[in-house]
Design a protein around this nucleic acid. Structure first.
Length: 421
RNA sequence: GUGGGUGUAGCUCAGUUGGUAGAGCACCUGGUUGUGGUCCAGGCGGUCGCGGGUUCGAGUCCCGUCACUCACC
């Protein structure tokens, strides 16, 4: 049934739509297999989902993996991955792959994350807003970005063309345009000029992408997603979306879109809706960097098809695990003698073989198996949640599932919060 | 038995010319949303071996005592 939409091997086929929303199910076709959407894409920044075997990721239902062009460029080098036959063969992942462009690193290496931004920015240029106590390691100009490697202090230059060349060397099925990711601290004026810059870069990405595609006709087609910025401003988001969709080189525009930038829980759904309303049905929409359960429901309801996020993996390495009754730290003292799985209803390898007491022990003892087992659980939890949401859209029970899952997941949190106040 | 050393938080130790105690680890609790991977932020915790003395004031000085430890008979 999932017909291939074009001769490229890439395509998107919408399936079922929510009766009263922009949410939908669908199938993304790639040269390395289909992705049933909505889907959570596991993050494997440096060509590995930290602490977990690719076989385990496949077993827990991960449909695709997303790596990062910037990190792989620094180490081991995009040419090495290219020589290995591309990202998939290199990391022994036979399924669909994504690479992010490195655009996010402009922000994370430059001004830092939104929560740690210095509040006093008086006297500084907009692009000099910087996190307190951090050294700026990226500078943006209209042509590209200059990075300082956090690994060895060496200087590197990223441009839209460079990112495209690197991502073609990495060879993922779906790649992203090189964009500038701003923060909520930036002024409206800066957001406007940044969106304009991202738009100009988008055209350059599309042009270089066409060139690289021609040079590598022997390889499977790589789909290019444009990235929509515009922060929390409706006019900027809508215009940015239309502008990207209007681009075309040699009769070919973007194959899909990423929604990026500063998103807060309160405006996440609204922003996804603005963008989704401006986009055609037949192009997939990827929401970058989101995976909390409530955010997933909100984003899917408003039209997002795929997601990637480091959260399940990152928090797992620090003992935080998801359960249908909310998130908790398995290192809590009360789990020392808790001989039950993290979540009795979870079907993951960890929950079917190990107890909270054992995981508690592994963390306390500093054993690295703790990371492996908890990452497997968290990744499975989010993958399965999105699978359940997909099924609910098919059978018309999306709202029931949302209310049931979120009601239970966050009830325990408010109970805990309430009891400690 | 004689001489020396050491006794401060659960552990290892800091505590300056006396001004009613700190660190690291451990323990407890949070946090982490296109990964600068094993981190960040809080918190609990000590009648400074014990008993006297000097002093306005002693973990710091004096006396005694106990424990551990080293060396020598």
């Amino acid at each position: 049934m999932p017909e291939i939409a074009s001769a490229t091997g890439f395509g998107f086929t919408p399936r079922t739509r929510l009766p009263d929303g922009l949410g939908r199910t669908g199938t993304i076709s790639t040269p390395h297999g289909p992705i049933e959407t909505p889907a959570f894409i596991a993050v494997g920044t440096k060509a590995t989902v930290k602490a977990v075997l690719p076989e385990s990721m496949a077993e827990l239902g991960a449909q695709a993996v997303l790596a990062n062009a910037y990190h792989l460029y620094l180490q081991p080098g995009a040419d090495v991955v290219d020589e290995a036959g591309g990202l998939g063969p290199f990391m022994n992942w036979p399924g669909p792959t994504f690479t992010d462009s490195g655009g996010f690193q402009v922000m994370s290496l430059g001004v830092g994350f939104k929560k740690v931004l210095a509040m006093d920015t008086a006297g500084l240029a907009d692009d000099d807003v910087i996190a307190e106590g951090r050294t700026r390691m990226a500078h943006v100009d209209d042509d590209g970005v200059t990075f300082t490697s956090p690994k060895d202090g060496s200087k590197h230059r990223f441009t839209p063309e460079g990112s495209m060349r690197i991502q073609h060397q990495l060879g993922a099925d779906i790649i992203f345009a090189f964009d500038e990711c701003t923060t909520l601290m930036n002024t409206r004026d800066y957001q406007e000029s940044s969106v304009a810059r991202t738009q100009a870069w988008a055209l350059r990405c599309l042009t270089e992408h066409g060139r690289q595609t021609g040079l590598r006709a022997d390889r499977p087609y790589q789909a290019l997603f444009g990235v929509v910025q515009g922060a929390q401003f409706e006019d900027l988001r809508r215009q940015a979306t239309r502008d990207l969709e209007s681009l075309s080189i040699g009769g070919r525009g973007f194959d899909g879109y990423g929604i990026g930038g500063a998103l807060e829980k309160e405006n996440l759904g609204t922003i996804v809706r603005w963008v989704s309303e401006e986009l055609p049905e037949e192009k997939p929409r990827h929401l970058l960097g989101i995976s909390e359960p409530d955010d997933l429901f909100t984003a899917i309801e408003n039209g997002a098809d795929t997601f990637d996020c480091v959260s399940p993996s990152r928090v797992a390495r620090n003992a935080a695990v998801y359960s249908r009754d909310g998130r908790f730290n398995v290192t809590n003292a009360r789990h020392r003698r808790s001989f039950q799985p993290i979540d009795a209803t979870c079907d993951c390898y960890t929950c079917t073989h190990y107890t909270r007491a054992y995981l508690h022990h592994l963390f306390k003892a500093g054993e690295m198996l703790s990371s492996t087992l908890c990452t497997i659980h968290n990744e499975r939890f989010i993958v399965r949640l999105v699978d359940d949401i997909r099924a609910s859209i098919h059978n018309g029970s999306f709202r029931e599932l949302r209310d049931e899952v979120l009601g239970r997941y966050y009830a325990s949190r408010s109970m805990r919060t309430g009891s400690t106040n």
